[in-house]
Design a protein around this nucleic acid. Sequence first.
DNA 1: CTCACCGCTGAACATCTGTACAGTCCTCGG
DNA 2: CCGAGGACTGTACAGATGTTCAGCGGTGAG
Lengths: 197, 197
Amino acid sequence: MRSAEGRDSIVEAALRAFGERGIEATSLREVAKAAGVSPALVVHHFGGKEGLVAAVDEAALEEFGAAYEDETREGDDPTDLLRRRSAQTVRVMQEHPAACAYLGRALVEGTEGSARLFRLMIEGGRAEIDALAERGALREDADRLWATLQHFFLIWAPLSFMPLLEGEALDGPLLDEKILNRWADANVDLLRGGLYR
Amino acid sequence: MRSAEGRDSIVEAALRAFGERGIEATSLREVAKAAGVSPALVVHHFGGKEGLVAAVDEAALEEFGAAYEDETREGDDPTDLLRRRSAQTVRVMQEHPAACAYLGRALVEGTEGSARLFRLMIEGGRAEIDALAERGALREDADRLWATLQHFFLIWAPLSFMPLLEGEALDGPLLDEKILNRWADANVDLLRGGLYR
DNA sequence: CTCACCGCTGAACATCTGTACAGTCCTCGG
DNA sequence: CCGAGGACTGTACAGATGTTCAGCGGTGAG
């Protein structure tokens, strides 16, 4: 049973195509052609486009989650935690550009997997904020729900707006190392001390 | 010539439908039915779907731009400027929910009008940041390009992620007054002083 | 060997999409 | 009154899309 060969190539091609052109905008036939496979095989393996999207969601989340292993060491000061999380995010995005691009799309197209990702990010982010708050590192008047969402926006909005950014504001690919680092530094600065006096 | 009647009802219906379900996901026939009009009339007036999207872009941008009149008075301190801009945004979003929802969608679906909106927001935001910097209100080490983009994300990401937010994180419509105010306050707090110590 | 199984395909199908076209109704300038 | 023009419609069409189905070929268990 070398079943996985065709299946995996389909998921891989779909991940890439969905991430680049959008999920709804990409047809089964395009995915099949990119995977070097007949459209019927996609249906055979996944039952239809809906099943394909679910499988791609699964694959992207798994890849992302595996890369985003928790490296937190308790006891560090909050600025370090922020910096470490930031560097981690940069690394994940660099090493898994296709999965990140796909998830950025999925978040605004509303797939089921993206809702799961959103819940995970929100719950994890909230927990971390609460932990920082207990250590007295958070402004005591902070709105924790919206603080969590702000973190989420600062991280994911660039991915969802990627075409716009790359076409109108940046001078290169968002997932380029230099740009990614500038972005991450700016986020840390904003979260730590704001922009204005 | 009461030409505008049918035309306007089509644009209005399209704005609403595109904002709710997405542009690509909404067919000409749905728009026509919602406007109480035949699909052929849409083609007659706009030449096709592409033309419709352009017209809706135009209408949304005009509505948004007209509502977002510049009320800046020079000489105020930066915190006031931030608060005023914030209140202004809340007001615009409350009073023009359909246009805002549409623009949020358009930004991630990449219509031509959305690119124009993006450029406007970026240029305007950048100019304001530069002005604040000249008055010494900006952190001197701030990355002004990304600071501009951060402003943009904090304002527009919630609109683009609206279904996700309302389904998973908020306990009501994003464009509700209370929620909108909490959001705006959180943004001002973050931009002024960051979240952490 | 053989037979069931499974990955895989080509062709066909119904449906939905955007669009074209011929023609109807109404209004308005002459 | 009349003719032109434009808002508007019903119908039809070509193409794309997701999906179905009968069948091919190779592989592994009995």
